[in-house]
Design a protein around this nucleic acid. Sequence first.
DNA 1: GAAAAAACCGACTGAGCGCTCAGTCTAATT
DNA 2: AATTAGACTGAGCGCTCAGTCGGTTTTTTC
Lengths: 195, 195
Amino acid sequence: MTKKDAILQAATYLFSRKGFKDTSMGELSKMTGAAEGTIFYHFKNKQEIFLTILRNLKDGILPEFERYRKVESEKTGLDMVEESISFYLYMTKTRENLFSILHQRYPYELAETNSECRDILEAIYNCFLDIFESAITTGQQDGSIGDVPARKSALIVFSMVDSMVRFRMNNLYDVDALFNELIESCRRMLENRNQ
Amino acid sequence: MTKKDAILQAATYLFSRKGFKDTSMGELSKMTGAAEGTIFYHFKNKQEIFLTILRNLKDGILPEFERYRKVESEKTGLDMVEESISFYLYMTKTRENLFSILHQRYPYELAETNSECRDILEAIYNCFLDIFESAITTGQQDGSIGDVPARKSALIVFSMVDSMVRFRMNNLYDVDALFNELIESCRRMLENRNQ
DNA sequence: GAAAAAACCGACTGAGCGCTCAGTCTAATT
DNA sequence: AATTAGACTGAGCGCTCAGTCGGTTTTTTC
């Protein structure tokens, strides 16, 4: 692994654990074995490290989500919603550090002044929502899901799932214990009752 | 207003807007007109200012929530859930600064080492959950709500509502546009269908 | 194998931070 | 009028931080 990659990896870890502002270049230097000067040789400043992580997050994750979304399935839309929730929870578990960064204040603060950051965040969240929305519209076509506004319902489902992720990351609640109830709640919320 | 109160008020504003770590004593001093020394005369350190705000938040808000919870009502439990959601959204709107502080990283970081902070946060969240839980159990008694696990469902409803608050605070989505759908979703999620 | 380019180093800088402290001011008490 | 105590002040201390710079080592190119 190149030193540049080592820096990005360590920064991802530290930013997710301690936050952007509370991670110092000295720590980053110590963790990677690179001198502070080396870090600034590869990245013009601290913010640029963060943006690079965000760029990589987008480029690494979006294709995976897109690929998942386009997989043809024999399932009903309602079952697809359930599967999408599991998929999202699985993704956030395998990339905990990256998703933890998305739950922090700094990216949204940066987005206010930096348009690239804003665009990346928007692309990421649109992609997440699309997963749920397309499952819902599929369900409305096959009759498994009732007559609900698809985008808004997708947003509500997403907000529920994202809260679970937040619970898990902050060790506030055992998400496994809540998982079944979450799925059942979403089913009751969406299912078609006029069949 | 005493200078001590002015400091607390300004700190609440600054902490909620910029976060704990990004608020400097210099700023706080400038905003209140108090010398930096004065701040440390009233509070032994920066953390103590934060804890005082949290203490006041608890003492100011919990009684109001408790009072609301104990109001006898003619409504069905399901209607009470809807009303509780509105009540929670209303409370977060009138005390936006305080609730914004609860959505930050610092209080939970502090809670890891400071037991008073931990206790306050726990008391606050238990109180929030109790509102929704007692509406749900009421609904199960009057038959308006189905056979769902009350505490877990309360947690799910709370997580939905709290996400709305987060959307509003970060200007990510127009919550008013989502409000009706949120209510309808919760109703579908909870209502008794065996009547 | 020499020259050029890229990667790397760590001591250093200046700004900003939380917090201290010696001392002033004000108003009540004796 | 003298004393006292609480409220308040702001210069300044010790420290941390992001970022710089002059120089060294490693790699690439011809």
